[in-house]
Design a protein around this nucleic acid. Structure first.
Length: 482
RNA sequence: GACCCCAUCGUCUAGCCUGGUCAGGACAAGAGCUUUUCAAGCUCUCGGCGCGGGUUCAAAUCCCGCUGGGGUCGCCA
């Protein structure tokens, strides 16, 4: 039976690269009906932290992976020491001055048959003698890895490309201990946008971090799947269940892949769009609570679902939602500067008032009825729909963009809409009239010009001086820097 | 530096094994349609086989070299 493992070290969070390795292992096991083992490589007691372990386990589960067994290397130190002792007694290893146990590497050619890359040859003569047990009696990575993979019956080792050069070091140990050498498959590395190693800046973000940013596990897993694997057909959206059916190691490619957050975002938007609104609502409610838009348990789920439906095709992360829908939950919309400007630009008190009165006549305040009344009014007034649509949108949402106006109004309900139209009228009244301002300013300026010509002239001279000084300074600046 | 891996649009990739279909799709970018704004959707455009040799009637595909990129060289994992 096929048995694979993912062996994270709890010295850091699970990030894109590790998650992809885990996913490919899991997929391979599930596809073949084999076992997927988790082995925690916590031999570095000083750097291993529970916080990391928790995050790793949680993220794996969140992404949809389950494991059949869980091992901790820190609990198996005796086993490693026994095998080291055996090599010592057989003369294959020796003890260093500090007590470390070191394996004697012979001169031979090591061949591995990589499932992805084919045959790879190494010259063991180039490999240094390998430490098996450190001075502090803890096992080294390569040794513990070999002992565990053999004892746990791992049939296939799927791991990152960066482990290729570890492979010959491990193979000599398998042979020395008479263990069966597993099959290896070295997965292409995932790199940052700059073509180098994935760093914090280039995408080595913890999986839990992506979760916080509003990404769905479905889209993240789907994206990871596409990094180094392809179903062969032109298909981008592959739910994990389908991936289990289709995953073949022979379709894994050799080339390193660059992590592209744009495509991940696109996938996330695709999944959000397809999501069941009810389920999406449940995912969104915690975010709404955090933003203070809904409190406690007394919220109307059905109402939120209708909000979700309206915004589903407009957001690409769950976090976007909160930014878009604030006006639905707040008593008064928060105005964006451009929306405020658009609204204040022209006094439409009369039109807004007429609109509100028309809405009074509507019994069933739905989008169709609203649109009908709205268009009738526009016709009567002899203006274009746009001329009223945009200011109304600004007034009710505080934004210049959003879903269809009539759907949005239906969502908010008649009373709220009327209140907001009314509020807009007040804004026009209290808003300082720009034209007045300009006129007043001009009057003051001109009268000043006449009454104090001398002063103005003086000011002009002063300004001229300042300009000269500025130029001098500029020249100096250039000399210094160029 | 030594050893190893890799090489198709800016990015993810199909095609390579088993040479012969305008090198196909997706993201991004640009344009248009739709329209009430923004999305979504639909249509179109842009853009690629790293280079040089072979083998062959024919090379992205097979072979060699070069170049480029990446990885590893810890008593870290």
């Amino acid at each position: 039976m096929i048995k694979v493992r993912f062996a994270p070290s709890p010295t850091g969070y699970l990030h894109i690269g590790g998650a992809r390795t885990a996913l490919f292992n899991w997929l391979y096991a599930r596809h073949a009906g084999g076992k997927f083992i988790l082995r925690i490589e916590d031999t570095d007691l000083a750097r291993s932290k529970k916080e990391y372990l928790d995050e790793i386990l949680e993220s794996l589960a969140w992404l949809g992976m389950d494991w059949d067994d869980l091992y901790y290397q820190s609990r198996r130190f005796d086993i490693y020491r026994d095998y080291a002792a055996r090599l010592l007694s057989e003369g294959r290893a020796y003890t260093a001055e500090n007590g470390a146990i070191i394996f004697k590497v012979g001169e031979e050619e090591i061949k591995i048959n990589d499932l992805i890359r084919g045959e790879i040859k190494f010259d063991a003569g180039l490999i240094k003698d390998q430490v098996l047990i450190k001075e502090d009696k803890s096992p080294t990575y390569n040794f513990a890895c070999v002992v565990d993979d053999a004892l746990l019956g791992i049939t296939h080792v799927l791991r990152g490309d960066d482990h290729i050069s570890n492979t010959p070091k491990q193979v000599v140990l398998y042979k020395a201990l008479d263990f069966k050498v597993p099959d290896f498959a070295h997965l292409p590395l995932i790199m940052g946008k700059d073509g180098g190693r994935l760093s914090k800046r280039t995408g080595a973000t913890a999986i839990s971090e992506w979760r916080k940013m509003g990404y769905l596990p479905e889209s993240l897993a789907n994206y990871l799947l596409l990094l180094g694997w392809s179903p062969g057909a032109n298909q981008e959206i592959i739910p994990i269940g389908e991936a289990v059916k289709k995953f073949e190691i022979k379709n894994v490619n050799k080339t390193a892949a660059v992590f592209d957050s744009d495509k991940l975002q696109w996938l996330n938007a695709q999944y959000i769009k397809q999501y069941d609104p009810g389920k999406l609502c449940d995912l969104l409610i915690p975010q709404l609570k955090e933003a203070g838009f809904v409190g406690g348990e007394n919220f109307n789920r059905e109402e939120i679902i209708s909000v979700v439906k309206l915004f589903q095709s407009r957001i690409s992360t769950l976090a976007d939602f909160v930014d878009f829908v604030d006006f639905v939950f707040l008593d008064n919309p928060k105005f964006n500067p451009d929306a405020k400007e658009k609204l204040l630009n022209k006094d439409l008190s009369k039109e807004f008032n007429l609109l509100a009165r028309r809405f009074d006549k509507i019994k069933d305040f739905n989008a169709v009825n609203i649109e009908e009344e709205f268009r009738n009014l526009v016709k009567e007034l002899g203006i274009k729909a746009k001329e009223l649509v945009h200011p109304v949108r600004a007034a009710i949402s505080g934004k210049t963009v959003g879903p269809g106006l009539f759907e949005t109004m239906a969502l908010l309900g008649k009373e709220k809409i009327k209140a907001r139209l009314n509020m807009a009228e007040k804004m026009w009244k209290s808003a300082p009239n720009l034209k007045c301002f300009i006129l007043l300013f001009a009057v003051v300026f001109i009268s000043g010009l006449f009454s104090g010509c001398g002063t103005v002239k003086g000011a002009y001279q002063g300004a001229k001086e300042d300009w000269k000084n500025l130029q001098k300074w500029d020249d100096k600046f250039r000399e210094t820097w160029w």
